[in-house]
């Protein structure tokens, strides 16, 4: 076809470019959306605000090492000694994964007082709690660990400690979408 000036040919190539960009945006959106869907689904299924946590310290070794992933579950079942719970102290950002070693459950209200300890620590957790706090209550507990996957959490640890790697990976992923 011979084209002169702004013709059908130009229009077609312009539309093709538009379409290409549109598909690109769509597939990037799909990746973000499906990640979000998986995360929200896990939240629904497990009933926990953060269904997956990465172990950051060695306080539960040799059971859980740094970089391992724990799956959490939050149910109405009463908390019992021996369970591994994730708790958050008021005024502290980082949740802690430790084992319950003492439980005192009220007869009338069903409220619980819980004491925790890391398997690899010599002392119980009272020193981690807020000043003057002796026990954890139900509302401190974010979930209990039910499943375990080794090593996978290293990806997040590396990425959060070296932002450069995060940008390189995101860039590579972007290239993959275009390719």
């Amino acid at each position: 076809m011979v084209c002169k000036g702004f013709s059908r040919c130009d229009l077609i190539s312009y539309l093709t470019k538009c379409l290409f960009l549109f598909i690109l945006a769509l597939s990037s959106g799909m990746i973000v959306a499906s990640a979000l869907i998986i995360w929200k689904m896990l939240m629904c299924v497990t009933g926990s605000e953060s269904p997956v946590v990465v172990v950051l310290s060695g306080s539960m070794e040799p059971g859980f090492k740094r970089g391992d992933i724990l799956f959490l579950h939050m149910s109405r079942d009463p908390i019992r000694a021996g369970e591994i719970v994730v708790y958050n102290i008021d005024g502290r950002d980082i949740p802690i994964v430790h084992r319950v070693i003492q439980v005192h459950e009220r007869k009338d209200t069903g409220e619980v007082d819980i004491l925790t300890k890391g398997d690899n620590n010599d002392e119980d957790d009272i020193s981690f709690y807020a000043p003057g706090q002796r026990w954890l209550q139900r509302h401190h507990i974010m979930g209990r660990a039910v499943g375990f996957l080794p090593y996978v959490g290293w990806a997040t640890i590396i990425m959060s400690e070296n932002p450069l790697i995060k940008y390189i990976l995101t860039g590579a992923l972007g290239l993959l979408v275009i390719a």
Binding site: A81, G82, K107
Partner: peptide, 23 residues
Amino acid sequence: TKQVFVFLAAEYKTPKNALNQVS
């Protein structure tokens, strides 16, 4: 099996508490 964590707990009831578990 990677490991087994085992513990012995004393469990009892008191007038105030329906359950006490002390490792």
